[in-house]
Amino acid sequence: MSAGTELDLVELTAGVVLACAVVTLWRRDLRALVAVLALQGVALAALAAVLALHTGDVGLGVVAGVVLLAKGLVIPNLLARVVRRDPGSRETTPLVNVPASLVAAAGLVIVAYLSAGRLTSLFPSPMTRLAPLGLATVLVGFFVLVTRRKAVSQIVGLLLVDNGVALVAFLLTAGVPLLVELGASLDVLLVVVVLQVLATSMRARFGHVDLDQLRELHD
C-alpha cells in the first residue's frame, strides 16, 4: 500500500467518523442512531487497521480488532436491545430542533478547526492535520448529550465523545498503547451497561426513558 493510498484511506475513514456524528443530529429514529453509531465504530476500526498495516505495528492491529469488536459490534448490539424494548420510539422533541442542530454542528466544526491549530502545530504532518475532525466529533457528541432527551440518545452522545477522543489519539500519536485502548474500551462498555440498566429501570419505574423528567428527583 503506497503512502498516498494510505493517507486517502485515513482521510476517508476519519471523514466518515465525523459524518456519522453529524448524521446522529439529523436522524430521530433511535434504531437509525444505533446503526450510525455502529458504522462509526467500524470506520474507526478501519482507520486503526490502515495505520497498523502501514506501520506494521502488531499492537495497533490488536487495538483495531478491539475497537471493531467493542465499538462496532458489542456496544451497538447492547443499545439495539434497549431500543427493541420499545419499538418505534423516536427522539420526538429535542431541546434544539434538527435544522438548528445542524447549523450548530457547522459552527462546532469551525470552532474545532480554529482551536486544533495548536495541536497540529506540535507535529505538523498530513495525518495530524486531520485532528480537527476528531475534535469536531467530540464537540458534536457533547452537543447531542446536551440537547437530546432520550436515554439512548444520551448514550449515543457519550459514545460519540469517546469515538472522537479515540480518533484524535489515533491521528496525533499514530497509535494508542494497547493497554490504554483496552482500558478505555472496557470503561465505555461498562458505562453503556450501566446506562442500559438505568434506562431499563427508568422505564420500569416511570414508564418512559425521558431524562428531562428526572428533574422531579431534585430536592
Binding site: V111, A112, L114, G117, L139, F143, Q154, D212, L214, H218
Partner: peptide
C-alpha cells in the same frame, strides 16, 4: 442554578469546553 435538569448540567460543561477552545484558539 442546578434545577435538577441533566441537560442543564451537561450544557454547563459543554459551554465551558467550547469557550475554552475559542479562547485558546
Amino acid at each position: 442554578v442546578p434545577n435538577g435538569s441533566v441537560h442543564r448540567y451537561l450544557a454547563f460543561g459543554f459551554v465551558a469546553l467550547v469557550l475554552i477552545l475559542v479562547v485558546l484558539a
